[in-house]
């Protein structure tokens, strides 16, 4: 009962072109699949159909496509990929809508800024690492029962709640021209731990990304979260911090949660300037 124009003719089949990759560092290749059209499909249900038929459009048996999903209702952030060239959540990408834009085929590609693990699945560890970098948490004393938190005006809640809906999907960073892909290779003889540490060090020097800047602003606006405001600004004024942002505003345009990222970035910029001036005079 999706309110699309019912008179519009629907195709019998849907062609799905998928950019596949068998593993990290392997060469990507395109593969064409075909499924029977049904109304009300989304990209996840298309991938499920493809998984259960296990053949490509020539009827040749191929390994099933790998992808990531969870909630299927655009709240967990798992299922990000590029669909018809635009990064977005695949669970909420309705096929009928996509066919309106491009009736020939659906084109599915992995996100562009993260190392591909396999096919449409990427390694987004760096996104979470950035949250640690900006200390995106409230530094409470303990988890014992110590009474309620501070009272908060409705206005404050209404300012914070939208920022708090960030689901770490990574659409924003994928679209950001300043966020460059980092893909390291494990060296011969390197232990897992050493490799992890090398990756983290590389992540920590690179641009944190708009989602993390926004989280820093969220916690700097919390009565107790504020206690770490200085440390967060320190991180944002360091290498890969706020100055890396070129203000291209791509991020805010693709965020599925419509988080006001550029507002956060603006706030962070002002706070960072104040912080640097203060630091200069405190020397």
């Amino acid at each position: 009962m999706i309110a699309f124009d019912a008179s519009q003719k629907r195709p019998e089949f849907i062609k799905v072109r998928i950019r596949r990759q068998d593993g990290p560092g392997e060469k990507p290749y395109w593969e064409l699949h075909q499924i029977t059209y049904e109304p009300e499909l989304n990209v996840i249900s298309v991938l499920q159909r493809i998984a259960s038929q296990a053949t490509n459009s020539d009827g040749k048996k191929v390994a099933p496509v790998t992808w990531d999903c969870g909630c299927l209702e655009e709240v967990c952030g798992s299922c990000t990929m590029q669909i018809n060239g635009r990064v977005r959540q695949s669970c909420s990408a309705l096929v009928d809508r996509l066919l309106e834009d491009n009736e020939d085929e659906l084109v599915l590609e992995p996100m562009s800024k993260f190392p591909v693990i396999r096919d449409l699945m990427v390694d987004r560890q760096r996104l979470f690492r950035a949250l640690e970098r900006v200390k995106a948490w409230v530094p409470v004393d303990s988890y014992y029962n110590l009474g309620p938190g501070e009272r908060q005006l409705r206005d404050t809640q209404e300012q914070n709640y939208p920022l708090s809906q960030c689901m770490s999907c990574g659409c924003c960073v994928d679209a950001c021209p300043q966020y460059k892909k980092i893909e390291l290779k494990k060296e011969a003889g390197e232990t897992d731990e050493a490799f992890e540490a090398r990756k983290e060090a590389a992540y920590d020097e690179s641009f944190v990304g708009p989602h993390a800047i926004s989280q820093a602003m969220l916690f700097n606006n919390h009565p107790t979260g504020k206690a770490l405001a200085g440390e967060r600004l320190e991180a944002l004024t360091g290498p890969g911090g706020i100055q890396a942002c070129g203000n291209a505003q791509n991020c805010v345009a693709v965020c599925p949660k419509e988080i006001p990222l550029t507002t956060s970035i603006g706030r962070a910029g002002r706070a960072a300037t104040m912080y640097k001036i203060k630091k200069f005079f405190d020397k």
Partner: peptide, 8 residues
């Protein structure tokens, strides 16, 4: 206290 933005 942990920062959940409960409606007010």
């Amino acid at each position: 206290r942990l920062g959940v933005p409960f409606n007010r």
